[in-house]
Design a protein around this nucleic acid. Structure first.
Lengths: 208, 208
DNA sequence: CTGTAGAACTTACTCGTAGTAAGTTACTCG
DNA sequence: CGAGTAACTTACTACGAGTAAGTTCTACAG
């Protein structure tokens, strides 16, 4: 031991720990540079590990990206769902859901970059996984829509779907718009306006 | 007779004609295979020309894709704008606009594939061009929204923007949803439901 | 303190595709 | 005809996704 230098950095770790480490780096880099702008070599270098190891753990670039996406989406979905469930009635639930959505995205900008990039995956098997995550949101919205209608009455499912898809699309576009606008309106303002826009119309859904 | 024009062997053409030829092939191939799934060599082979020629005319893959995108979007925008302008009042204009949108996309499925793929361009300078095209739609919607409000009264521009972005997002997501659903509701049904959902709420925009 | 099984990890590639440098062919007009 | 120029090509480089095959480290049985 003639050398006085320390050698702690390059230690082996068990699989679970490495996977977590890779995922965190990937989330950060994808968030900064986007899907296209990130190479697997970048991620590998950042973690201090070689590329094939990442392939062994995540299978492909899409696989790694999807792992990030699923985690972030899950987190976002939980936040919104909690806000919705805590509301005393349908009207408040709608507003609370919108507010939680926009607030979360304000507080996790890098997360949002990853989520927005999902459009990147419009081709390939990754698209299916992406759609599954989105479907959970649509389902939450559809549930809220039904909450708002006279209980026990049969409902036109097509109309519920149309409304739920509309709301999902509106909130996504608003989120993108807010990140690209210099001084965007506050989450409260946006949630309020959206609530005003939609609330009346939600009663027009017909029975099937 | 696969084509109305004859292609004897392999003649030189002037730039404008070649550009059109390349653009048509690119539109078709992008529409079939998506952005990622299309290589410049594919397009070149299809046209019967070498790759550098396409680079000379369109600069990059993004440039070629954007040229397709701009043309298709322009066409779509014209169709919707015509329908809106032909309507006798704001309420009809809203419905007519939605209807024209969904009908156009039903009738030009390959065009829509290209438009959906624009998410692909979220990175790079191409994103700006994409946003410009979308901004024209937002402007059209904002104009409609204003049409619907008491004339001459000052209006909260933030709220108009929020509403316009929402409508844009809703229609885009509905269009995507319809292409991925086995037996989607008719354009009339979707336009009607969306109209019902939004019409009441459009009166809630406040003065500034 | 071995020796050995298997997990963690690496080197050194292939392959496909965006993009380019430099040259060649055909058309046009004096 | 013979220049000048626009249309076009061959033959590359660069880079990033994904892989085959091997090399250490570590836990644990004897």
């Amino acid at each position: 031991m003639t050398s006085t230098t320390e050698r702690p950095p390059k230690r082996r770790r068990d699989r679970a720990a490495r996977e977590r480490e890779i995922l965190e780096a990937a989330e950060r880099i994808f968030g900064e540079r986007g899907y296209q702008g990130t190479s697997m070599d970048d991620v590998a270098a950042q973690v201090g590990v070689s590329k094939p190891l990442i392939y062994q753990y995540y299978g492909s670039k899409d696989g790694l990206f999807l792992a990030c996406l699923a985690r972030l989406r899950g987190h976002l979905l939980d936040t919104v769902a909690d806000a919705v469930m805590a509301a005393p009635n349908a009207e408040d639930a709608l507003y609370a859901g919108f507010l939680a959505w926009f607030r979360f995205l304000d507080e996790h900008p890098q997360a949002w970059s990853v989520l927005v990039d999902e459009g990147m995956l419009s081709a390939g098997p990754a698209a299916e996984a992406t759609d599954e995550v989105r479907a959970a949101f649509i389902e939450l919205i559809a549930t809220m829509v039904r909450m708002n209608l006279p209980a026990g009455r049969p409902v036109d499912d097509d109309e519920v779907q149309i409304v739920a898809q509309s709301i999902s699309g509106a909130t996504e576009r608003l989120a993108i718009w807010r990140t690209r606008t210099p001084a965007p309106p506050s989450p409260e303002k946006v949630a309020r306006t959206l609530q005003d826009l939609l609330w009346q119309g939600l009663h027009t859904i017909k029975s099937s």
